[in-house]
Computed example of a mutant assay.
Amino acid sequence: MAALTAALISTPLGAKDAKEPSIPSEDDAPIAYLIDAASGQVLYQRDVDRRFMPASITKVMTTFLAFEWMEEGRLFPQQVYGVRPETFKQWHRKGSTMFLPADARVTVDDLLHGITTVSANDGAVVLAEGAAGTVEDWVAAMNAKAREIGMTNSHYGTPNGWMDEGKTFVTARDLGTLARAMVTRHPSKYRHFVGAKGLKYNGIEQRNHDPISGVVPGADGIKTGFTNQAGYGFLGSAKRNGRRLIMVVAASPTGRARNRAARSFIEWGFKSFDSRTLFANKARIASARVQQGGAAQVGLTARGPVRISVPKGQSPKVSLTLRYEGPLQAPIAKGEEVAELVVSIDGMPEHRVPLVAREEVLKATPVQRVFNALRSWVT
């Protein structure tokens, strides 16, 4: 790995005066994770790679997989599924439910609202069976999707998080990856399906037990969970003034402690950081050496603006390091991910930004190879 330290930024950033809010206590939230949704920057982390049983937070992956299949044209909101007799027998009134009747003909739209709003165990199974044919095939697709988006330390055994002898486990870091993929890939679907205050279905009204929606300004989800072994957990998100934060609190001893931690944590995130732009959209951030190419270097840029969060009331030093396997080998496609920018902010976790090629670099022609060789002798 070639590490090229670039003096792109090494000056302190300015800060505004602000009172420092408190972080949730370790007693209330033994596992705690807070990230900026747009950049993926970690604002706070505590025991984020510890595995735990997510219980109903499992349904976030079921929801995300449904969003992905909708985008691919494999699933449609107005598709109608029936309830299999064996499914009704097993899941009727079992845990959280949307009270699907035995003869139900229910749309995907209603099933997803049941899953996201009232944590419907029955709805998750009916959706899995209808969309994939069997629960087993749906769960296999959940795990494949988890691997695809970079959830490296999680596994799913059910579509709804019902107890399965520990086959289903996640980490806070992986849940942050999942939530970020959901809100950035599918913002319109997220707005439509997540964060409703309640659900009326089959003549029964139920409310959403999300601890921050309607309480914390800008909050809109995402999912609570509880098991006796793992305690109380919550994967949540809120957006204010164009900025979205995602948080995980887990292993809380009581629901009250979990709710207190969640509300405190998300407020702390919004009140304790300022957002700064390091590079505008499409800006040339750096360049990397290229071997056997028609050009000796390729420009590097990010896929969007590069922003960071810095603590209010402080002036942290920010330094940048460019890293890539170098020299790069031609050909290189425009937009191909070839490097990363490591952002180091005093007192905060390291932040990495993928960088892509700003232009295409083809393999060198015979004449270009001669000139490249001559250039290497004199430089």
Rank of each mutant, 00 (worst) to 15 (best):
R173Y: 08
D210I: 00
G161T: 00
Y190G: 04
P159E: 04
E129K: 05
G166K: 09
K145H: 05
F76C: 14
G82W: 09
P77C: 02
F76Q: 13
G73I: 06
T134M: 12
F169Q: 13
A196D: 10
M142R: 00
T177Q: 10
T158K: 01
Q206P: 08
G157K: 04
Q90A: 15
H155P: 06
D164I: 02
P85M: 09
M182Y: 05
D109R: 14
A120D: 03
E86I: 13
M182Q: 07
I204V: 15
P187A: 04
K94D: 09
R185G: 05
L127I: 13
A141S: 15
Q78E: 15
L111E: 03
V125H: 03
Y156M: 15
R105K: 14
T97I: 09
K94F: 14
Q90E: 15
L100Y: 06
T184M: 13
L75E: 07
I204E: 04
D110G: 02
G82S: 15
D122F: 08
S154P: 00
I115N: 05
V108A: 04
N143V: 10
P85F: 10
T87N: 09
A128V: 11
T117N: 03
V83T: 08
F193H: 02
G214A: 15
A172T: 07
W162Q: 14
A172D: 04
F88N: 03
L127G: 01
E205L: 10
N121W: 03
E165Q: 14
H155R: 15
A181T: 07
E129Q: 12
T177R: 05
G73P: 09
G73C: 05
H192G: 06
V194S: 01
G176Q: 02
M142L: 13
G195S: 05
D110K: 09
Q79L: 12
P101M: 11
D210F: 00
A132W: 00
R191M: 11
M142W: 02
F99L: 13
H209V: 11
L178F: 10
A141M: 10
D122K: 12
A120V: 03
L112T: 02
L127R: 01
S119F: 06
F88A: 04
H209E: 14
M151V: 06
D210T: 02
V106Y: 04
F88V: 07
I115V: 06
N160K: 04
G166P: 10
S119Y: 07
N121P: 09
A120C: 12
D137K: 15
F88S: 03
Y81G: 12
V139L: 02
H155V: 12
L112D: 02
I115D: 05
E71T: 13
V126Y: 01
R207S: 13
T117S: 04
M163S: 14
V135P: 09
N208K: 02
S96G: 10
G130L: 10
V83S: 02
E165Y: 13
I149Q: 01
T87Q: 08
E165P: 06
